[in-house]
Structure formats: C-alpha cells, structure tokens
Write a protein that binds this DNA or RNA. Structure first.
Lengths: 268, 268
DNA sequence: GTGGACCCTCCCACGATGGGAGAGTCCACC
DNA sequence: GGTGGACTCTCCCATCGTGGGAGGGTCCAC
C-alpha cells in the first residue's frame, strides 16, 4: 500500500467534504477511492484526488447536480465551458421564476389572499375569429403571446377593421395538452386568413379585473375560481381573457385584463 | 351523504391538483376531505373547499413548503401577510445566492477550472495586531467584514500608523466553529485597544491573486488547495488573505486579494 | 349484470445529505 | 503485547413533494 494515502476522514477534512459525501461519491463512481482494503473495506484516497474533490465541493456549492458534475469532470476542458454555461442558464431561469414568485408573494402580502373583486353578470354570445393551437400547460403563456402576434398580423394583412379588445380562450381543466385560442371580433363576412370563426355561448358569468403582469394572473384566477366554487357553481370552458390594456400600451404594472368565466348551475 | 359533494378526481381537476396531491394533503391534515366513506375509504370534498385547494396550489407554485402553507391557512388574515413576507425574503435570499452562483459559473466557463496562477515562495514571519472571533463556517464572510470595520476603528481611535494591507486569517479545515481574525502590522510597542498581537511563522507558502468579489474567493481557494495537494504538500493553518485593493477603493470586480497558504512537507 | 372508469392502500423512486445502530479496524501509548 | 479511543465499515431510515405502479375494491350508466 502506498504510504502517502489518506484515510477518508483525513481526506474529508482536507477537501471540506463530509465522510458521508465521500462514501456517496465513491458509490456513484464520481470520485472513487484510489484503493479499498479488501478485508476491512477501508477506503484510501491519494492526495492528487483532492483536486477533483475540491472541484466537486465547489460545483456543489453552486447547486449543480452530481450527475452534471460527473459530466464536467469527465469532459475534456473545451466542452466543460458549454456545460457550465448551460448550468448558468438553468440558474438564470430559476432566478427569473423566483423573481416572479417574489412579486406575487409581495402582492399577496399587500392585498391579502382575496384581493380581487369578483362580479356576477350575464354575457351575450360572442363571435370571434381566432387562431387555435394545442400545447403543454406549462407553455400556455408563451404560446398565447405568439398567437397574439399571429392574429394581429393576419388581421392587418387582410386589412380588416377588428373590434378591440383581443380575446384569449383557455381551458378550465388542465390536462396533458391544453387547447388555447386568441382572436377578436371582426365584421360579418370578413374572413381573415388562418383564423377560424367560433361562437362563445352567452349566459351567466363571473368576472374580475386584473391589473399587472400576466405572470400574476394566477392570483386573479385563484380568487375567481374560489368565488365560483364557493357558490356551488361550475365553471364552463373556455375561460376568456380580454386584454383591455396590453403590452405596448402601458408598462407591465398597468396591464389591464378582464377575466371572464362562464358558469352554470351545479347540475348535481 | 350530502349530494353536492365531489369525488377526489373531480375535485382534483377543478382545483388543478393531482389526486396524489389531494390524498397527501388529506393525510397531512392540510386539506382534509370533508367526508370519508367508512366502508370504501372514498374521500369526498365540498365545493367550498376549492378555495383552500386553489390557494394551496397557488402557494405551491411559489415554492412554499406545505408546512408554511398550513400555517398560512390556519393563521388569521392579519398575520398571513407577515408569513408571506418572510417567505418572500427567503426567496430573495435564494435569488441573491443564485446570482453569486451564476457569476461564479460564468467565470469558470470563461477561465476554465484552473484559471488561477499559483506561485510558490517563502514568507518571513509576520507579526500582526488582530481582532479574533469564533463563528459558524457559513457566516465567516459576514463576520470578517465586521472585524475589518472594528479593526480600522480601533487603529484610528488609537492614532496608530498601521502598515497596509489589512490581513485576514482563516482556518484550513472547517469544523462546526471557525476561528477567524483580522488585523494589520503596527509599529512596535503600539497596543491598539481590543486587538491582540499574534505572530505568524515564516516558511514555504503557496499563493495566488484573486481579482473580483469576495463571494468568488472559493474559486481561487479551489485552485490553490488543488495545487498544494497535488504536490503532496499539506496546508498549515491559518490561511492568510491580504486585502490589497478593498471595498471602497474600487468596484467589486476590481477588488484584489492575495491568498497565502503556508505549507509543509507531507510528514507521512 | 357488466364493463370501464374511478378509487383505495401500500410500496418504491427521485436528489443529496444527515443521523444512528451495531460491528469491526487502526494505532499510539503504556 | 495489550488496550482504549478514535476511526471506519455497512445498513437502514429520514428529509420534501411528487409520481409511478401493483393489486384490489367501488361506483354507475348502459
């Protein structure tokens, strides 16, 4: 046995890792002990393994998964940068989401959990020319934004005088795939290319107004659905959003959206 | 049995939660089914439970732990804001840490994992007047900052002409508690109040220069320790940091710090 | 009455780490 | 050459929130 080898405890203190961690990394093959005593099972580490061990500790502090760290250690230095940058982007994404969450928490703390005034009314049937698509629930926001651009382009290209606001239609119950639609009221007979006509039935609705970024719409929906269910009513798809003040017309904090949920008496 | 009750699957779709989640919340008592059939074990939910269910979903999207959500639901509205704000602060802290991590990843991607030039030399003994403290490893950064202010105040109050740079002394192996010290060279005979004299022995050292925020010092240490262990050397506490260009003298990105690790031949 | 959708409980999995039990090993000191 | 104490081993379990799946029971509309 080499006489410069280190026991696991000594090596752990050197590299600022716990013994448990080192054993775990050994099992994973991420940082295998350079020698294992067949009789006692004792692990021994070589001093030059400290470089990898320290690197693991460093990357773990940056919250990289062990599998990714393994990739990095195994990859040739040129492709390491690529992986590291991908991880940085992953973190950037998390920061973005966390900021949204913080804003929503702030708003909840300010306005309390209700915070929205829900009103009840009756809507006339609404005929729209819409662009439809099907997507995963997580990407509804992004896809709806794309549809808006698409609809505006189609209306403008066809020279159709549409009647604001733009409307968005969304499912009530989110399955694996959600069908969404964006459109507007157009004059009778107008046939914007790529858009299809759809008629939303009239009837009783619950509605509320949301002021602020679209990322905070869940707050409004929370209040709206809660109010609907509290009265023993059932929401009827699709839910409608009217973009009264949209991006480009005002800063994010002043976006104004009207949320309309058709309801029906509980048939039970 | 009330005839307006909902089965778990129906209720789940309504509230955009999974059946598994609802069962889990029922077990936890976070959202107990309003009625459970004694014979079949079937859970039934009342429509007005949708409010809490929706709220749980909303708060979960903001990554609040279920225990905290339980607190919020149980707390009277006035104290809800307090909890929500505390959670927001927790998120803010995570964002802060993630940003630091992103910067470190960026630097690693740019410079590669080595990225630091380690030089070998020999230091003369160094006598400092320092302020010591003991703290948890996690708060070393903060505590060291406090010490710096304390040391500068003590030196100025006593009118002592000290010789820059300021030095920081840190343990090599982090236990539960770490003893740290901050100080400077002072003229012989000078006795700054609150500071104690300490002599750092001379001998062989490894050192490197770090440019940038102190939060990125781990990168430099990683390179430095790796180089030391690779040569079969052992670091000797305390590690020394010389703050050549400190905060107040330059923007964060231009802070210059010299890291010095005394080493000794591996006695094994 | 029957098929199909629904529901039940129980167990396991993820990711990384820590805690602890119970047993074995190493080494410095006497 | 003992011996005590520090060290190490392997297991198992816990965290946290969710999902998957097995194996079996229930509900209801046709």
């Amino acid at each position: 046995m080499r006489n410069d080898l280190l026991t696991i405890g000594r090596f752990a203190r050197l590299c600022r890792l716990s013994v448990k961690q080192l054993r775990h990394y050994d099992e994973l093959g991420l940082l295998a002990a350079v020698q294992v005593d067949a009789a006692s099972g004792y692990r021994y580490y070589a001093p030059d393994q400290a470089r990898d061990a320290l690197t693991i500790g460093l990357l773990r502090e940056m919250d990289l998964p062990l599998t990714v760290i393994a990739e990095i250690l195994a990859a040739p230095p040129p492709s390491r940068a690529r992986i590291l940058r991908a991880e940085r982007d992953r973190l950037a994404e998390r920061v973005r989401r966390d900021r949204t969450r913080m804003d929503m928490l702030e708003r909840l703390a300010e306005g309390g959990l209700p915070g929205y005034e829900v009103t009840w009314g009756s809507e006339l049937p609404l005929e729209l020319a819409v662009s439809r698509t099907v997507c995963a629930p997580a990407e509804i926001g992004q896809r709806a934004g794309e549809r808006v651009g698409l609809v505006l382009a189609a209306l403008q290209a066809a020279g159709i005088a549409w009647e604001p606001p733009l409307w968005g239609l969304y499912p009530v119950e989110l399955e694996d795939r959600a069908e969404i639609a964006v459109g507007a009221r157009v004059p009778e007979g107008a046939e914007p290319p790529g858009l299809v006509r759809t008629v939303l039935p009239g009837g009783p609705v619950a509605e509320t107004l949301h002021t602020g970024p679209y990322a905070q719409l869940p707050l409004a929906y929370n209040a709206l659905f809660a109010a609907v269910h509290e009265r023993g009513l059932r929401p009827r798809a699709p839910v409608r959003e009217a973009y009264l003040v949209g991006p480009g017309e005002a800063p994010e904090e002043e976006l104004l959206t009207r949320l309309v949920i058709p309801v029906e008496e509980d048939p039970a």
